[in-house]
Amino acid sequence: ILKMAVSLLAILMAGVSMVSCFPMAFQDLEDHSTNRTSIRFLALGDWGGLPYPPYITAVQKTTAREMSRVAEQMGADFVLALGDNFYYKGVKSVDSPRFQDTFESVYTAKSLQIPWFVLAGNHDHAGNVKAQIDYSHRSDRWRFPSYYYELNFRIPNTGKTLTIIMLDTVQLCGNSLDYEDEKPRGPLLEGEANRQLEWLQERLARSKADFLLVAGHYPVWSVSEHGPTECLLHRLRPLLIKYKATAYLCGHDHNLQYIEESDVGYVVSGAGNFLDPDVRHWNHVPKGTVKFFTGQASTLGGFVHAEVTKNQMFLTFVQAKGTSLYRTVLTQRDLN
């Protein structure tokens, strides 16, 4: 019996250490060219087509075309998909034709056959998010391991690291019914929200990454239709500041924004499918923090290209009709 108990304990201990070290695994970058010294990715939100034929919008199509061009010319190791992956009510099952119609057959370029790291938005939560997670087993590039998760990368040939923490802000704050201009009214499951928050705090506190990004669907700060998310101002912003996050990336508002506040960069990249020039919350963000905004229909859509080098992170805001609109540089975390 003692022998059995000891071996059982050994198995349990192995399980515990596996659970705690699992998130620290480093992602493998596909491109192994020996002289590279940066990681590059695209950030795209609110790209989820339409629930009826042709299942995509003109903005989504033009944005997809420009993404492929930028990925080819500037390089891209992966895409961060920032939620609202399928309008208007997510998908019902892993067999939904929407995966094909709105994703696989739209982002067809060779340069976009790279990992897509996915998180869920409010429209996804109107359907079956678990089905989107399960689709990871059906697609080579769709990576959605759980509602929230952590990605770790080594920046090639630099000795530096990049961590991206992917959140489920709908589980954290509650769902919002867009058409009623609803704000999230608090989480559906308080316990689930607190669990995620504790996990996040633990990951942030432990992070020694040189660049630390957090991504979610809802904005912390936004000047547009939805404006700042109270719940995230209250629950997330203090953690971003305390643990010196480099930037927070999100979608939800259908435009491109860059806001800088308390040494954190706030990126809104929600122009993948629709465009909205609305700036009704311009005075609801701290004065002087808005560095860039565009939601004009004439841009035909847009996304963000990021490059993380040895000690800087370059963000380029790109419009679908083929020019970059704004560029900014963030420096690595000072952990001393």
Rank of each mutant, 00 (worst) to 15 (best):
L233M: 05
H234T: 03
R235G: 00
R235E: 10
R235Q: 05
R235N: 10
L236M: 02
L236P: 03
L236G: 13
R237T: 11
R237D: 15
R237M: 13
P238H: 04
L239D: 02
L239I: 12
L239R: 02
L239M: 09
I241K: 15
I241S: 14
I241C: 11
I241Q: 15
I241R: 14
K242W: 07
K242I: 02
K242M: 08
Y243T: 12
Y243Q: 09
Y243F: 14
K244A: 12
A245W: 06
A245N: 00
A245S: 04
A245T: 03
T246S: 12
T246M: 07
Y248F: 10
L249M: 14
L249T: 03
L249Q: 01
C250R: 05
C250I: 06
G251Q: 11
G251K: 11
G251Y: 06
G251F: 04
G251T: 10
G251M: 06
G251V: 09
H252N: 11
D253W: 12
D253V: 07
H254D: 09
H254S: 02
H254Y: 09
N255F: 00
N255S: 02
L256F: 05
L256H: 08
L256G: 07
L256R: 06
Y258C: 01
I259M: 05
E260W: 09
E260T: 12
E260R: 14
E261K: 05
E261N: 05
S262K: 12
S262H: 14
V264M: 04
V264N: 00
G265L: 10
G265A: 15
Y266K: 02
V267C: 05
V267K: 05
